[in-house]
Design a protein around this nucleic acid. Sequence first.
DNA 1: ATCGAATTGTTGTTTAAACAACAAATTGGA
DNA 2: TCCAATTTGTTGTTTAAACAACAATTCGAT
Lengths: 181, 181
Amino acid sequence: MVKVDRRIIRTREAIKKAFLELMSEKNFDRITIQDIADRANINRATVYLHYLDKFDLLDKIIEEHIKNMSNICESEAELDWIESTVHCMEYLERNYLFFSTMLASEGAPYFRSRFLQFNIEEFKKDVDITKGKNLGQNADVVAQFVANAYVGVVEWWLKNGMPHPPREMAEKVGELLARIL
Amino acid sequence: MVKVDRRIIRTREAIKKAFLELMSEKNFDRITIQDIADRANINRATVYLHYLDKFDLLDKIIEEHIKNMSNICESEAELDWIESTVHCMEYLERNYLFFSTMLASEGAPYFRSRFLQFNIEEFKKDVDITKGKNLGQNADVVAQFVANAYVGVVEWWLKNGMPHPPREMAEKVGELLARIL
DNA sequence: ATCGAATTGTTGTTTAAACAACAAATTGGA
DNA sequence: TCCAATTTGTTGTTTAAACAACAATTCGAT
């Protein structure tokens, strides 16, 4: 792991924070680089040192969250389904502002499909069609099935202001998942 | 007004914020420059670019607040006593963390006397011994009298978690002040 | 009282960010 | 539709901050 200059970290954090705030205030295509720089209290030119444009910025933010969730999935792989899902739900809760904005906003229609794709990949790892209840099933079909179900529930949960705590959600969803996987 | 580089402003703000946080967590003499740098997320050497040491830092913060209050007093000089005091009280409320820490902390015994001194100067401007109820009084005595009274009340107010809203405090204290000045 | 660890204050060098200015493109009202 | 204002993306130069390393204190536990 290379050591990154403190200023770089700080600047990128400021940009991302500013961008997320703006995302929850106005539409994606109404946000200018100027806005972001002003909010982050940095020079406009500095934004271009780190990102090509606001699309690139959004992409990088999305990829970062996907990566983080991927890490959670990996580190929790040994735990049972419930505990694993709890950690994922808690991650979503911690980053509520981002995810709810992403799923609600018209300006970011790419996020849902990226999020779905990630979950398909993850669930594929857990599908076993060589034995058990899914013997004879098609791995893609099962993965598509559960991933869409999962994403749909998460979407509903976030859009409705997280009406149940992460653990309860994880238990309910985990139980349903266990019936499929 | 000279334009100051954005980085300088940002760094100083970060240092002062970090310092105030630390002040409310531990004693003044337990705070190291290292602590401040870590908390502010800047390099330790950068602190020395702006301040001689932590004493200098504290001095500068105190002077800044005194200056701010001085500005409030000036700009409100035309208003009546009540309104003027309301603005002062609100300033104290906005900076509650700082003032209560300063008045409570053992590590900053200099603040009270500095704050008192400022108020003595301010009240001196309002004492008129050439006519009215203070004809024949001594200006220094009157100024000392009201300044100590005022600071004492503010101290009590802050130390007790601001049990009354700024406006109410200003009205009560303003009425008492009007009897003297 | 002593030793190791932490803190201090300072320095030289490198690098990220600020700033200012630019032409080109885009926007949005009149 | 047209024009002014805004935004964009880029550049050259300057400057503040990062970093690393240093000797000198100071601290704190044994």
